[in-house]
Design a protein around this nucleic acid. Structure first.
Lengths: 186, 186
DNA sequence: CATCGTATAGACCGATCGGTTTAGTAACGC
DNA sequence: GCGTTACTAAACCGATCGGTCTATACGATG
């Protein structure tokens, strides 16, 4: 039997395994088992092995957020860009059933391996949100803090939703944060 | 050469390794290397192996939070108990340089292994904080949401602080949340 | 149809995994 | 001093780790 994959498919499949298992928890054999890609295919696409797989997965996630969230926040009409951010986030994390791979990598020592992409992902997100809030009329001093609160809320809600196995927590938490951001505009 | 340990010391040492590496990332040999406990000692204290080590570490963390935070929130004068919670949290996580082991375990599949302790830790915390807020005069409907927001903020701030390698984020985020809780009392 | 490059399957490798066993050494009750 | 218990050190085990390699299947191009 022989199934043919393309590299973009491979990245998406591998991403899901890292998301579920973490970097250390995702062994090559669990990756082959869950993605149905053989070792040969994996090392064909990612000659650099597990580290390259994770690096490309991080880049792939970052690119998605850049396209759907960061760029709109940076360039589009702020009110609409912020609204789009909330729907994109809710959609992406599937009510907290899916976690933030980059946030998860940040917690243990795999952070050191991928420090730069992890850091720039969160920095770009907070900077972009702060800029959009400011353009939207949020008072000067409040923008930075609200942006940090919003992104921390998202990350924290993911932890809580998984820990308590309760999807409603994620949506409720996001709903409240969305209102807080809106209420600080002029 | 021979060094003698007691089990409580062993638990605290092993806890730090799990905190830094995660469950899967903490191999027995990294544990022996970082704790200076030999395999013999480890399996003497924890005959159930790695899983027992993690289970006892989780119980140890839970006991600390119960003593320093949950019980005060549940039984002591609410205003003071909430103040004590914030100082205990800031102290425990060392300005975000230390992460929440239980939150980190919740993110990947190790959650399934320790679902019960993880869940009950967060449930007790939110319930205790909600009860204290209510006793402190927070309007009926707001208590639950504020409690969830506060704990999610803490978890999220830990992610952000580590991701951006910026300790100030944790303290600023906690400072804001503390004010929000206080401002909702009567 | 022949050929050639791309991609897949899976045997195979040394190293490390979690865990067991054996052989102790120190501290304490008597 | 003598046994017993509590604890440690390290050799050792099969399984699994990340990674390599060979063989082959397939689509595109001639």
């Amino acid at each position: 039997m022989r199934t043919v994959f393309e590299k973009p498919d491979a990245i998406a499949l591998v991403a899901e395994v890292f998301r579920e298992c973490g970097y250390e928890g995702a062994s090559i054999s669990t990756i082959t088992a869950r993605t149905r890609l053989s070792k040969g295919s994996l090392y064909h696409f990612f000659p650099g092995g597990k580290e390259q797989m994770a690096a490309e997965v991080l880049a792939h996630v970052d690119a998605w957020f850049a396209r759907e969230i960061f760029v709109p926040l940076e360039t589009a009409e702020p009110h609409q860009a912020i609204a789009q951010m909330w729907t994109a986030v809710e959609d992406y994390f599937r009510s907290g059933k899916r976690i933030c791979l980059i946030g998860a990598f940040a917690l243990d020592e795999t952070r050191d391996r991928f420090a730069k992409p992890i850091r720039s992902y969160f920095e770009r997100w907070t900077n972009a949100l702060e800029a959009a809030l400011t353009r939207n009329g949020t008072p000067a001093g409040d923008g930075r803090q609200l942006a940090e609160d919003a992104i921390a809320s998202i990350q924290g809600a993911l932890v809580l939703a998984r820990a308590m196995a309760d999807e409603t927590i994620f949506e409720r938490s996001l709903g409240r944060m969305r209102l807080r951001l809106a209420s600080h505009a002029t």
